[in-house]
Design a protein around this nucleic acid. Structure first.
Lengths: 143, 143
DNA sequence: TGTTTCCATGAAAATGATTATCAATCTTGG
DNA sequence: CCAAGATTGATAATCATTTTCATGGAAACA
């Protein structure tokens, strides 16, 4: 956790960017809030205790987290960008229930290495990937 | 190809929707135009010969193709929805070059079945999935 | 063929997510 | 402490998408 803050601070410093109170507050809340958070959700949480922090600032700061590599952006088709922290986690993929919108994370090294193989076959160097499985969880299937 | 048109016609009829000239024209151009086409790209193509067809109509009709199952929607992160026809093709996945924006299609049954296994493990029934590998093609890597 | 119903159209307006603008503030380095 | 310039917050602008609405037209029926 401290490592994330340190990474962010170093990124700012290296890029000649500033470490502001607002950025610290947004990072704190982002790390506390859990995964797959939309910009608006985070903004609403922050506003409770820090009504002076503006929506645009939250927006910009989340994008900065993403550029810095401490967060990943996801678009699961609902028109909202969601962010999650990379804290303590390896890359993972997502199962999304189209019924209840629940998001389940998974990882399968076998899939990862097959992806690498596909890329090699096409002489591609992979920088990023997304694997999202959309379907119905057991509960939604019973309804 | 004629199967696609028939599928679309039957869908319209089953749903009590109308088969209009505009829809036929849009379908023709869509099928002719090739893959991974954005709404605007298709609209510009259609406008050349049919300047009376409006942008909103192209929009709506592409969405209708997607609902009907004769086209698939993709979002590769550039803010534009792209459509491709399902004509004659099995489901496939995408390699996207972040340099030149080239899109390469691939399919790997081994990955598909690992996905099924992951879903089963979480008691999910998959309805749809997306696998997108982002990276650099050999040409962009030389620049 | 004519009539009726109601879906679809086209253009423009509206919507919502995202980005840009700008005066004021603040952080950081010297 | 001061200067430089990044950042802020509120608002305006932008963009993809959707909605609105008067009019047109497809399809079903007689």
């Amino acid at each position: 956790m401290g490592k994330i803050r340190e990474t962010f601070r170093r990124y700012l410093s290296d890029k000649g960017l500033k470490s502001t109170q607002q950025r610290e507050i947004i990072l704190d809340e982002f790390l506390r809030a859990g995964s797959h958070l939309s910009t608006e959700e985070l903004y609403l949480r922050i506003r409770r205790q820090h009504p002076n922090i503006g929506y645009a600032t939250v927006y910009r700061t989340l994008k900065l987290f993403s550029e810095c590599g401490i967060a990943e952006e996801h678009n699961f088709g609902d028109g909202q960008t969601r962010y999650e922290s990379v804290a303590g986690e390896e890359h993972h993929d997502h199962l999304i229930c189209t019924g209840c919108k629940r998001i389940i994370e998974f990882e399968d090294p076998r899939i990862e290495s097959l992806q690498d193989e596909v890329a090699r076959l096409h002489d591609f160097k992979i920088l990023d990937h997304r694997l999202e499985l959309y379907g119905l969880c057991s509960e939604c299937r019973q309804k």
